[in-house]
Amino acid sequence: MSTRGDSGNHGAFVLRLADSNLVLAQRLGEWIGHAPALEEDLGLANTALDLLGQARLLLTYAGALEGRGRDEDALAYLREEGEYLNCALAEQPNGDFGDTLARQFLFDAWQLPLYERLASSRDPQLAAIAARGVKEARYHLRYSSGWVVRLGDGTAESHGRVQGSLERLWPYTAELFDADDIDRAMQVAGIGVDLGAVRVDWEQTVAAVLAEATLARPGDRPWHWYGKRGEHGEHLGHMLAQMQALQRAHPGARW
């Protein structure tokens, strides 16, 4: 399916998807037990569990593509920050409930059209994972967009808060659509997708939801983050230090 030179790209492409899911699941996991209402503890846990499940499948697959015997845990727990290829949006701190749901909405609105296209990837493994992910992503988007609408069109306070969340998070959405060599090579090979087309869908969803939420679309600004190339801000290192603590403290132990 892929030429020799593409196999590195292929692995990195899968790893990007895996890491974005894993990192966002880890963030959502911080909420469980501390949400504004019991239903939201359950809702955030649902999304977190789905994303974690997808991350595990994708990591296992990325490990197989790499062919060096690394399993999901070796990839999750024994890679350094610079080797993580998640989008920077996923690693942004939880902030308040509005920040978390705005982050989730911007992410879900991207992941759904991405998975819809990946479901017909020429890579059958990836296509199968994406096809399963489509159903989950659609549900996540319903949950997150529902909250963006309620917060946007709720009280003056909630409106102001969630508008601020969107402004802060907006710059991190740019890399989602900024195709680089890996994205282009995968698209040419029929494995990846046209990110421009994903963007059209994303813009449509975002416009519709923000209109219903009476929120304004933030302006595009220059951005500095390429999480998918391993260039991260200051947050990911702390997250990994916490997530990987036991594996690092007990090398080789089985759990």
């Binding site: 501390h34 949400a35 504004p36 209402a37 939201e40 308040d96 409930f97 509005g98 609408v149 309620r150 917060l151 069109d153 709720g154 009280t155 306070e157 909630s158 808060r161």
Partner: peptide, 12 residues
């Protein structure tokens, strides 16, 4: 911390 969220949901 969730007070403003529950209020927003009610208002909506």
């Amino acid at each position: 911390n969730g007070g403003w969220v529950r209020e927003a949901a009610l208002a909506y």
